[in-house]
């Protein structure tokens, strides 16, 4: 397993450096697609298959399409910068170092003494059958124990859907109305 991890991470580093150096923006978009496919395979290796799936759908699918749509409006080549931008580099390096420092507090991967294994998981596994009554533990956690959390998520998704409808649906609706008027005439 470890060799696969190392090779995938090395490929990610190469792709990321190439994206930064690349002046042809179309090639950069293609390389970003490869980058997100690589991170999706890493997530799959870490057993987070659902996260990997989201990464592949959003990173490799939707954002590639969105970035290509932007390229159609702007242009394919990036201009050369006049001078090196030192301040952003310093900010990025400091932020990255702080994030790396933060990871030292995290429990080891797969450690049985993690808080996530010690906290409430046992109770869910043992009692959810009587307390909620669904055969699937994940369902009982999502719908009952963390019901408020799920309600919030559903609200966010609903708001996003309403926003998309308000932005995109209006044109189609007015067009249909206009066509109906022409038919009446």
């Amino acid at each position: 397993m470890n060799i696969i991890d190392v090779v995938l991470l090395a490929m990610m580093v190469i792709t990321a450096l190439a994206v930064v150096r690349m002046r042809n923006l179309f090639a950069a978009v293609m390389l970003l697609g490869i980058f997100s496919l690589l991170s999706a395979s890493l997530y799959a290796l870490l057993d987070a298959v659902d996260v990997a799936f989201t990464e592949a759908a959003v990173g490799a699918g939707i954002s590639t399409v969105l970035m290509l749509g932007t390229l159609a409006l702007t242009g394919e080549r990036e201009k050369k910068p006049h001078r090196p931008a030192w301040l952003p580099l310093v900010v990025v390096v400091v932020t990255g170092a702080a994030l790396l420092y933060g990871t030292f507090d995290m429990p080891l991967y797969g450690d049985p003494n993690d808080p996530i294994h010690k906290h409430v998981a046992d109770r869910y596994i043992e009692r959810s059958g009587q307390e909620v009554g669904t055969p699937n533990i994940v369902t009982s956690v999502l719908a009952s124990y963390r019901g408020f959390d799920t309600l919030g998520e559903v609200t966010v998704i609903f708001t996003a859907g309403v926003g998309v409808l308000a932005l995109l649906g209006r044109g189609a609706l007015s067009r249909r109305r206009r066509l109906n008027k022409e038919d009446d005439r």
Binding site: A40, A56, T64, V65, L68
Partner: peptide, 16 residues
């Protein structure tokens, strides 16, 4: 899951 990946890959290529 690998099968669903194949579908996404297809859609991306068509979009490009």
């Amino acid at each position: 899951i690998a099968l669903v990946y194949a579908l996404i890959n297809f859609i991306t290529t068509i979009a490009v």
